[in-house]
Amino acid sequence: MANLSMTVNGKSVTATVDPRTLLVQFLRENLRLTGTHVGCDTSQCGACVVHLDGKAVKACTTLALSCEGASVTTIEGLANGGTLHPMQEAFREHHGLQCGFCTPGMIMSAVDIVNRRGNSLDEKTIREDLDGNICRCTGYHNIVKAVAAGAEAMGKGAAPVRQAAE
């Protein structure tokens, strides 16, 4: 067992964990933040995407202990109190989700795309940058629309994720 401390959604957390604990397990099992999901074993599906020090990563392929001292934002930390993040709002407005299972990872990836590429995103860029997220329900059509709209909304004064969550 090893000691671990990090910041999750703006709060310091400490725990003693088995070294094999993955970040996603730590979030789901230790912190009961079950919005981050596991959809595959081979780092393809992206249901587990969280932000680690501001960058989207697959929490199923990251050891919790590797995140010692780091700041992690999960889907639960994206909304600012009762106000939804513009990307969350855009997913609802554009029907960018059906069963909801891939959605947290999709939204965290979408915010990361905006952080990297800015607020004006064309369809091709969005489709290519969603390469690490698989959705089985939507055919991506409305996800693409939601990401474009969410990106634009984020540019209109809505705070980007890092400031909102940390």
Binding site: S43, G46, V49, L52, K55, A56, V57, K58, T61, T62, S109, D112, I113, R116, D129, D131, G132, N133
Partner: peptide, 9 residues
């Protein structure tokens, strides 16, 4: 390489 998340790690 891979996808954006993979490239971050």
């Amino acid at each position: 390489i891979g996808d954006p998340h993979v490239r971050h790690r």
